[in-house]
Structures are given as structure tokens and as C-alpha cells.
């Protein structure tokens, strides 16, 4: 019980510290902006640890963070193999194919007003559907290995990317288009010099949404069948064996992978669309 009491005290102390920092004179600085969420996160982890130990919560309900950390450290080869199978082979290849195909499709659609008018509502509609549901079908078609996961990812990222790119390619003002007209610019000249750069913020929006979707697709598709490898496979089998520390270890990997993937795309976005008001510092 003392541990739980200690956890409560610690929680109070963390909150007090953050309040001091947030309402202090230097609260706007970068260091403080970074420190506060980190202190908050660390407090949660420590409180979690203490409560689990204090109340002797069984492993099958909630493992302590230290146990999860030990599991991560002790299973690096397995986690790495799962990561390669699910993220590199499944999610990343599907992401590249899906986003690439959607981009080319958007460019093709953009030439026809009629097609764009028809495809945009359909694309928006499909983008809101539970597309992960296609996983059992695609697993049936492409087998248990990563190809079927990549296929699920392709289907998942295609429509959000298509809709964003098509909308982005329309994102020019009448004046900008008239300017190109007075130069008698060809279709591709105005495409590469005006419409494509102007579409970049939208394209990156699609790319960012797709990073998360790709990982979701690859993991969930493994729930419908996979080789004895992969993050989704490991999660579902470890849940079955009640090895929750392993499940959490995979979730830590998935969280890291998702955040880094998103962060990488956001970083590239910052370099490409530095001119956009939302990116200026």
C-alpha cells in the first residue's frame, strides 16, 4: 500500500512541477515546451510501475513498465525480425506502391474535368469506409506472406492520397493560371512549374495520413493470417499465450515506428513546403 501512496505523492509532485513550469516566466521557451510533456510521460510511467507493484497486479492484466522494458531488451532479435516483416516488407512497400499509384492516377484524372468531378466524391466516400475489412480477401488472393499485407496497405492509402492530390492540383488561383496563360505555357510546363509545387502541402497531408494507415493495415491484416512472423502475428499469438509483456513490447515498437515514420515524412514536408504559411517559422 505504501507504494501506491508513494505513487499518489509522486503524481502530485509531477503535476505541481509542471504547473510551476507552465505558469513560470520561461514557459514559452523550447526547453520547457519539451520538458513538460516529458515530465508528464515519465510521471505516468513511474506511477504505473508503482501501482502495478503496490497492488500486485497480475501480469495477464497489466505488466509493469520495467518488465516491458526488460522484454524489449531481451527480445531484440525477434522484435527486429517482426519489424522487418511487418513494417519494411508489408507497410513500407505497400505505402510506396499505393501512394505512387494514387499520385499517377490523380495526375491522369486532373486532365479531365469530368473524371475529377466523378472521382472526387467516390474517393471521399471510399476513404471513409472500413477498408481494413478487405484484409481477409487479399490474404486469400496473395497468400499469408507480406505481399498480402502490402496489398491491404495499397488499398488503404490509395484513396486518401488520391483525394488529397487531386484537391491539391486544383489549388491554384485564377490569377496564377492566367499568368501561365499569358506566357503561353504548355500543359506540362504549367504542371511542373505551378500546379505541382502548389499541390505539395496537400500531397504531404495525404502522405502523412497514409503513414498511420499503412501501419494499421499491415498489422491488422496479420490478424487474418500470416507466416509465424510479424508484429500483428506476435501480438495475436502472445495475447493468446497471455504473454502481455511481449504484446506491450510490440506495441512499443509499433508506436516508435509509427512516430518516426510520420516524423520523417513531416521533416521532408518541412523542407519541401518551407514556403507555406503553416511551415514558416
Amino acid at each position: 500500500m505504501t507504494l501506491v501512496a508513494f505513487a499518489l505523492v509522486l503524481w502530485g509532485f509531477g503535476w505541481w512541477l509542471n504547473t510551476r513550469l507552465a505558469e513560470g516566466p520561461r514557459s514559452g521557451t523550447r526547453a520547457i515546451r519539451l520538458a513538460i510533456p516529458l515530465i508528464f510521460g515519465a510521471t505516468i510511467l513511474v506511477v504505473w510501475e508503482l501501482v502495478v507493484r503496490g497492488l500486485e497486479v497480475p501480469l495477464v492484466i497489466l505488466p509493469a513498465p520495467s518488465l516491458i522494458a526488460a522484454r524489449v531488451a531481451g527480445s531484440l532479435p525477434i522484435l527486429w525480425a517482426d519489424f522487418v516483416q511487418t513494417f519494411v516488407k508489408g507497410a513500407l512497400s505497400g505505402y510506396l506502391i499505393g501512394c505512387g499509384a494514387a499520385f499517377l492516377m490523380a495526375v491522369a484524372v486532373d486532365r479531365s474535368e469530368f473524371l475529377r468531378l466523378g472521382l472526387l466524391p467516390v474517393g471521399n466516400f471510399v476513404a471513409a469506409l472500413p477498408i481494413v475489412g478487405t484484409a481477409p480477401i487479399l490474404v486469400m488472393w496473395f497468400g499469408f506472406d507480406w505481399q498480402s499485407k502490402a496489398a491491404v496497405v495499397v488499398v488503404m492509402v490509395f484513396f486518401p492520397m488520391l483525394v488529397n492530390t487531386v484537391a491539391g492540383l486544383r489549388e491554384t488561383t485564377a490569377m496564377q493560371r492566367d499568368l501561365m496563360e499569358t506566357y503561353a505555357a504548355s500543359y506540362w510546363q504549367s504542371f511542373f512549374k505551378l500546379r505541382l509545387p502548389a499541390a505539395m502541402p496537400f500531397i504531404f497531408n495525404g502522405l502523412k495520413i497514409s503513414t498511420t494507415l499503412a501501419l494499421i493495415g499491415a498489422i491488422v491484416a496479420e490478424f487474418f493470417g500470416s507466416p509465424t512472423l510479424g508484429m500483428g502475428f506476435r501480438i495475436s499469438t502472445s495475447v493468446g499465450q497471455l504473454a502481455l509483456d511481449m504484446v506491450w513490447a510490440e506495441i512499443v515498437v509499433a508506436a516508435l515506428a509509427g512516430t518516426l515514420f510520420y516524423g520523417l515524412v513531416a521533416l521532408i514536408e518541412h523542407h519541401v513546403t518551407f514556403w507555406h504559411p503553416s511551415q514558416r517559422r
Binding site: P37, T211, T212, I216, F223, I235, V247, I251, A254, T259
Partner: peptide, 21 residues
């Protein structure tokens, strides 16, 4: 300042992986 960064980060991770557990 404490919670918002985590809420934003949560959007980038496949939290659906928690479902089976």
C-alpha cells in the same frame, strides 16, 4: 502543455494494435 503533445503523437501510432489485448 502536458497532454496535448501526447494526444497529437497518438494520432501517428497504430493504437488499434492494442485491440486484441
Amino acid at each position: 502543455m502536458s497532454v496535448m503533445p501526447w494526444a497529437i503523437v497518438s494520432q501517428t501510432i497504430p493504437i488499434i494494435a492494442l485491440a486484441p489485448m
